[in-house]
Structures are given as C-alpha cells and as structure tokens.
C-alpha cells in the first residue's frame, strides 16, 4: 500500500533564497566581491570629484562615526520608527482587509470600483496637505502618508490573491460544511491567498521605508528630515550616512520578515 510515494525531500530553495539557517557560502563570497567592487568604483570616482558632489567612502565613514557618536543617528531612527511602525501596521491591515473584502464580494467591488479607481492614482505625497490639516505636523501626520502607501500595495496584492482562489476549493469547503461567507473567507480564501498577501506585505514594508523620507518633508523629525537638512547644507557625506542607515534597517526588517514568511508558507 502506498508504494507510489514520491521521494520525500527537504524543501529546496529553488528560487535562490538563502536557507533559513546557514548561509550559502558561494553566494556570500560572490556578494562580498560585488560589494567590494562597488566601493572600489565609488572610491575611484570620488577621487575626481569635490566632496559636496561625491565624498569618498572614507569621508562617509568618518561622518557616520561622528553621527553615531553624537547619538544623532539613534535619535533620528527612533523618531522615524514612531511613524513608520504605526503607518505600516495600519496601512497594511486596512489594505489587506479591503483587498480581501472587495476581492471576495463582487457587490462591494462594483460599489467601490469608481471610488477606488479615482483614489488609486493619487500619490501619497499629494496628500501632505491633508496630513497636516487632519493630523498636524507630527508622527500621526507622517504615519498617515506612510499608511496610504502601504494601503494600496496591500490592497491590490490581496485583491489579486483572493480573485485567484480556485472555485473548486470553495466548492469542496462548502461540501464539507462551511456555509457562511465569513467562514469561507477564514478557512479557505485567506489561507489560499496567503502567498500573494504575504508578498504584498513584504513589498509594502519596503515601500514604507522609502515613504519615511518623503513623509518627513513637511517637518516631522526623523531620518528623512535629517537627510533633507544635510542636503540643504551640502553635507553629502551625512546624506549618504543616513541613506545607509535606512538601507540597513530595511535589510534587517526584510530579512526577519522573509524568515517568518518562509515559515508560514512552508506548505508551498
């Protein structure tokens, strides 16, 4: 019995992602080479440019040390996180909820489609006026801008995921006693759409880090504000320092998220 068993094997990392534990040495090695090459080219280019156009890596390192030593980096990071986290969480939650609801219910979809299509092309930054009027120049205002960005990415990812859920799975669930819409959404639609939903969340997290900079344009303190101020003073080395801080933060959050995602989607 059951001899037609496929060879069971550990899930392979077929899309070139790192295994959960242990790092692929070859990839790590090549990555290091690429990084060193990038810094080398940067250094070379910086030799022929004044520091207010392109500072050398060494100059940036000095600026970074100074910014960290003065505590400026941690302060700015702490400020940005105070609107990044609520903005991302609120925008993601509402976006997923709206995407699932409209992807599931053609009635809701028909009702809201004109509104959705009108609002969709509005860039989050165009809403800065509203952010100031409704929330003020504070973390809540910046969180609002960030949430708008997260909302649309998650809305469309979830909407698409739900639309793609096979009718056959829903039929099977109905024949197994799931009869209400809410129960179907909970037991079939969300699990079936979870790969798309989780990819949307990941894209949204990245987009929100970018929006942190933009959302601080109107005066909310944080990394973005610091970058703008340094730009105005032609302190390019400081600008690059904070850009790197943003990159590292994104990398950390994204790596942690991917580990969670792999665990949740182990069935794929």
């Amino acid at each position: 019995m059951a001899t037609d068993v496929q060879q069971e094997h550990a899930p392979t990392t077929n899309d070139g992602e790192l295994p959960v534990l242990g790092i692929d040495r070859r990839r790590a090695g090549l990555g290091t080479v690429g990084l060193a090459g990038f810094i080398g080219v940067w250094w070379l280019a910086a030799l022929f440019q004044p520091a207010y156009v392109l500072p050398s890596p060494a100059v940036v390192a000095e600026a970074a040390v100074a910014e960290f030593a003065s505590g400026e980096v941690l302060i700015a990071l702490g400020q940005s996180i105070q609107h990044w986290i609520p903005g991302t969480i609120i925008g993601t939650t509402l976006g997923v909820a709206a995407g699932v609801a409209l992807g599931w219910s053609s009635l809701l979809d028909d009702i809201s489609s004109p509104v959705v299509r009108t609002l969709r092309p509005v860039p989050p930054l165009a809403l800065i006026g509203f952010a100031i009027a409704w929330f003020g120049i504070n973390h809540a205002g910046a969180a609002f801008i960030i949430a708008i960005g997260a909302f649309w990415i998650n809305f469309y990812a979830s909407y698409g995921g739900v639309e793609g859920v096979s009718d056959d799975l829903l039929d099977v669930a109905r024949s197994l006693g799931v009869d209400s819409d809410l129960a179907l959404i909970k037991t079939v639609v969300i699990p079936a759409a979870s790969p798309e939903i989780m990819t949307g969340i990941r894209t949204g997290i990245g987009r929100c880090w970018m929006l942190v900079v933009a959302a601080e344009i109107f005066g909310v303190p944080g990394i973005g504000r610091r970058i703008l101020r340094a730009s105005n003073n032609l302190q390019v080395d400081v600008v690059i320092t904070y850009i790197l801080v943003l990159s590292v933060m994104f990398l950390l959050v994204d790596t942690a998220y991917r580990a969670v995602q792999r665990r949740v989607l182990v069935w794929r």
């Binding site: 699990p191 079936a192 069935w267 794929r268």
Partner: peptide, 14 residues
C-alpha cells in the same frame, strides 16, 4: 454528500 474530484482539490496549506 462527499465529493471527490479528478484534480483532488486538496487544501495545499493543510
């Protein structure tokens, strides 16, 4: 009624 389809239609996440 228990329904069995040709294409199985198992819940892949379970």
């Amino acid at each position: 009624m228990g329904i069995v389809f040709q294409e199985y239609h198992l819940f892949p996440w379970r």
